[in-house]
Design a protein around this nucleic acid. Sequence first.
DNA 1: GAAGGGTGTCTTTTT
DNA 2: GACACCCTTC
Length: 731
Amino acid sequence: MEISKLLSALNPAQRDAATADSQHLLVLAGAGSGKTRVLTTRITYFCQHFDLSPWSIMAVTFTNKAATEMRGRLEELLGMPTKQLWIGTFHGLAHRFLRAHWAEAGLPQNFQILDSDDQTRLLKRVLKDMNLDEEKWPARQAAWFINSQKDEGRRARHISHNGDLFLATMQKVYAAYEEVCQRNGVIDFAEILLRSHELWLNNPTLLAHYQGRFRHILVDEFQDTNSVQYAWLRLLAGKEGMLTAVGDDDQSIYGWRGAKIENIRRFQQDYPQAELLRLEQNYRSTGVILKAANAVIANNSDRMGKNLWTEGTDGEPIKLYAAFNDLDEAQFVARSIEQQIGRGYARREIAILYRSNAQSRLLEEALLRAGLPYRIYGGQRFFERAEIKNAVAYLRLLGIRNDDIAFERVVNLPVRGIGDKTLETLRELVRAEGLSMWSAAETVIKQKLLPAGAIAKLAAFLHLIETLDAGTREAPLHELVDAVIKQSGLWQHHEKEKGEKGQARLENLQELVVAAREFDWDEDDAPSPLAAFLDHAALESGEQQAGEFEDAVQMMTLHSAKGLEFPLVFMVGMEEGLFPHEMALQENNLEEERRLCYVGVTRAMRQLYITYAEIRRLYGNESCKTPSRFIREIPAALVQEVRVKTQPVSSTPSPFRSNTPSVAVPRQTTLGGNESGEGALRLGQRVSHPKFGKGTILNFEGNGPNARVQVNFTDVGSKWLVAQYARLETA
DNA sequence: GAAGGGTGTCTTTTT
DNA sequence: GACACCCTTC
């Protein structure tokens, strides 16, 4: 596309950002300010206006989704295939360097990637081998420790423990883990970045080569970079390269996994000449929504500073609903969605955002009852499913016999009578001789170190892998996958499984064959289709695409909503302790929670609903909640409280009581002729009914003897009853 | 080695 | 309250 035409479609700030020719550029891009558009236009501008070859541009993102999207848009803009453009995630690009220079990086050519699940399993082994009590030294904690060290660029040898037992132990574990990984030829996610960084540090010529090649590096979501990622970028950009960082300090919500919001400031310190531009005009949300977002985020200290504005109208006020419990909240959301669909919203335009996944269940149930199709984002991904990981483990063994993680995973799956005793013998050999499990097995067989029965079973397994490998050398990838699934016995194993679960697993395995058939092998990436496919499986967890185009209400955590937008948004569970989350408060992370709130509010385009419950059941016990402080941070004038029918509202003060005393509400409504003390029916009251059993009062309608009461019974669900006939007793 | 019971955990998530 | 994980049992 013609560049002048592209530029004329941008506003002045966007145009400045797209065309700035300073060597170092920092763009603070507010939510909905057209950031991706600026990035892609900037790349196009540099290609066309400066005649810079796409070959010399690198664009880095955090998720595969963002990378794919950017590539798609660029293909459109540039009007040509973008294969030579290096667009990808940090991990994807770093991995590419490692594949190309495996020897210099100190890796075997066929090194494999360990996902977090593999990592934890491996660490469990390591801890066990070190005779560390797993109660006291959980694998997950060790994994967390190692990953955060790697995120900071530290190796085991860099850790000084000063006699601290925890640090000293973790250092030993880290060192042992490094060794096992090296011996097995596997690298975890954090290692991909660290290793790639070290590759350049140790090979100045190589670094110089790439510095010469990549003349312009652009990073998206810069506020989410961790220390290694930032160091990696700086190193690659070098003295000559141009570096464009686009980000929003107000949307930094991944501090807990190593992201360094400080990198934005560091960028300015490290590149004092850097140009700073702000994109503040928002094209997404109404004035009301933006004012609310601005007001909330203004409570954070030490911001870079930014104020979103729009030329659009104010739009509808934010609707606030105080539910008396979590069930009521879910029902309210379902009812409101039905209403809004009646007013013309499509289901897919509506999102429910929550702080933690546990909240989704009640909402799901309410949507289900209302007959509203929904789709939940997040949850288990395709390549993380157990059955898929099993099949992949077989594939990995075909690739490298020495892959102990894969070996351990499937040596007895499906069961072939290779038990703990056999494996312990192998592991001992592994420890003593530094062998892999596979070669240990070969030794055990050759030297008959076990009873004949065990030897035979072990030999049969090795034979199975060898035969599979030999028989599929020439076969296309999907046939290989199919053969592995069938001949390993995995297929039969799941066929025998009863219930829907086995069926679902078979379908997933089938899907793996399909994925293999559709997989496009790029020779630059890996030496064989199988190797490339395994990398793909590790690096792209395979977000479920199925059902993506179905018209369904969208449900997800606030975190996974980042980068998305929806005409109608429900932010639910806005209670102290839940959002901001208790843990965050304890760890003094209130500001990050507030940024998360900012992210949530700015997802909404036309209308925002906020709900909270006064009583919520969490982890089995009910507790009283107070409205989130974030609600109070929204100016009252932007908010309209919603009441359902002649509802008794609020047993706790409205968050706006201080601003609008006239809204003060009677404390609690009691019902029927039984207003004195003990038998009184209240919202949230546990009651029992002679026929329906126990339940909780959800709702009232009307007054006096004809009042109706809605009870959610444990066994039969929710029912409306006329109070005077219901013979409800408080339970 | 599958099934059942007991125990502990329970914020957010990509790669 | 739900689920995963570990251990024991048959």
